[in-house]
Nucleic acid binder design. Structure first.
Lengths: 280, 280
DNA sequence: ACCCATCTTTTCACTGAGCGAAAAGAATTT
DNA sequence: AAATTCTTTTCGCTCAGTGAAAAGATGGGT
């Protein structure tokens, strides 16, 4: 059918191999050889060979029908990544506790490039519609966790973000940088951020930064439906969780991991980044 | 012709690139270029180039010190993997609920090759020592989830596993295949498996299979310290969770993912990863 | 049953992409 | 300042990787 993503002008062998892996996304977790080839923008024979090798290393797995899917190995490696291996792992107990206390959706996010990424999201209700997947990139200016991250980022970074245009997601989205600037100051003062239907109509959130040695490493947030409860009553619990995590991370800092965002360069606001830019 | 001992230059470019990624593990999540080269068994210059490309695609990230670590991209891809994207995602609410009910450690595992893999593990207590990481490979014969998976696997598979020698982890580990065979029958009858200090002294577990259309897709388990409580009292809740998940998976089967284990071929008993059975 | 379309797998001769020794450049340590 | 260990760049040779094409599967429509 209509399959035609972006064309990866893969030139090196490695780039080609990576392009094959990059051909998968949320909507297409399983692909046949030819689909794969098409999406990767490479000749079938080439993909056949590459995919074969990737499969050997379990970077790709095939189902009974012969379709390809990203392999277990990839998943296992994801677990070794700083975001998971250090952050999520240590954060989990705190998140669970928090979720236990307030029984609302609890989330953990970090900053990467000019976006925030959901690292974890706990929703107990069996029936809630998938709001934002784990791994999803969300704007820094329109969500609780986003603003919490932004407010406590180094000034240079905050300024850089403020200098960019703010996409408007709902009528409530803050698009004026002066307003935003004022809000950030308020957030810094209060210690936590709030967001009311600024990203998605009908949902409110409250979020606090995880400050490790003075720098924001992540943000913890609680999300709920606008009318349900006043989330501010969870502020103490939220701050306790965030601080608890922060102290934990400080302790285990010996095994320091790289901080994800250092470069504003990489991914652009929102959406999927196929492959970051590259000079020659 | 005599060849140089361990000079494995019979590798394809792709294999080399993958070797670079594979150089990381739990103990070494961060490596300098030279360490990386050494661990991958490749010349520095080569790794330099490959790592450069991998970094461009964010398959590798570097920290401020220039050390390499597995990149965010890898993590994001792991999320698209069947184990996570389909299983973990749908299972999470059930696991959370279960954990909420019993306040014990709850885990989700699948079968891969001749091992089980922990896909998720929920521990609320902030201070528990790391027992088994998510992603860890554990034996099928010595744990609750393992036995639950084994008991409900196709006969051919069970037989194949029973034909292999059982590593003894504790004095309680079942090593005799007749005993095991009998237990498996019992498990099938009762609907859930139990394990008492068979893998790790001091901990008991109870586990139930997640049967989707008659085949085991996963197992949910509850683990606790031996003396704390009688876990069987959680059996109803456990079975409810397992069945609930199973039904959920059946519903969403439209977007069928490949079942992970099909081949016993792949990883050998206990896989290549060094795995401390008893944390020291 | 047939044909036609689309899929996967294998082959093979050509060639430029990737290799890695080596040297230059940084950054530490002695 | 010399020694050591790390990172980055260069460059000519060669063989690994390429992709068109053909052969082999598979499937589904009539």
């Amino acid at each position: 059918m209509s399959e035609e993503p972006y064309k990866s002008s893969a030139k090196s062998v490695t780039a080609r191999a990576l392009a094959v892996l990059a051909a998968f996304d949320v909507e297409n977790p399983l692909l046949t050889l030819s689909q794969l080839a098409r999406r990767a923008g490479l000749p079938v024979a080439t993909v056949y060979r590459l995919a074969g090798e990737l499969e050997d290393g379990r970077f790709l797995d095939r189902d009974s029908a012969g379709r390809y899917g990203l392999g277990v190995r990839l998943w296992e490696m994801g677990l070794l990544t700083p975001v998971h291996g250090r952050l999520r792992e240590t954060a989990m107990p705190f998140l669970l506790n928090l979720q236990y206390e307030c029984r609302e959706t609890v989330q953990l996010a970090v900053c990467d490039g000019t976006n925030a990424i959901y690292v974890e999201k706990l929703t107990s209700e069996v029936s809630v519609p998938i709001q934002s997947r784990i791994g999803a990139r969300i704007p820094l200016h329109a969500t609780g966790v986003g603003k919490a991250l932004l407010a406590f980022s180094p000034e240079a970074f905050t300024d850089a973000i403020l200098a960019m245009p703010f996409t408007q997601y709902t009528p409530e989205t803050i698009t004026d940088r002066r307003t935003m600037s004022r809000q950030l100051a308020q957030i810094r003062q209060r210690g936590y951020a709030q967001s009311h239907q600024e990203y998605q109509l009908g949902s409110t959130s409250i979020a606090a930064p995880v400050l490790v040695d003075g720098t924001v490493q992540a943000a913890i947030g609680i999300v709920s439906y606008t009318l349900r409860t006043d989330l501010t009553r969870y502020a103490p619990a939220l701050l306790r969780a965030a601080d608890g995590l922060a102290r934990r991370l400080e302790t285990a800092a010996g095994t320091a991991y790289p901080s994800i965002s250092d470069r504003i360069s990489g991914s652009d606001v929102h959406g999927g980044d196929p492959m970051p830019p590259q000079a020659s």
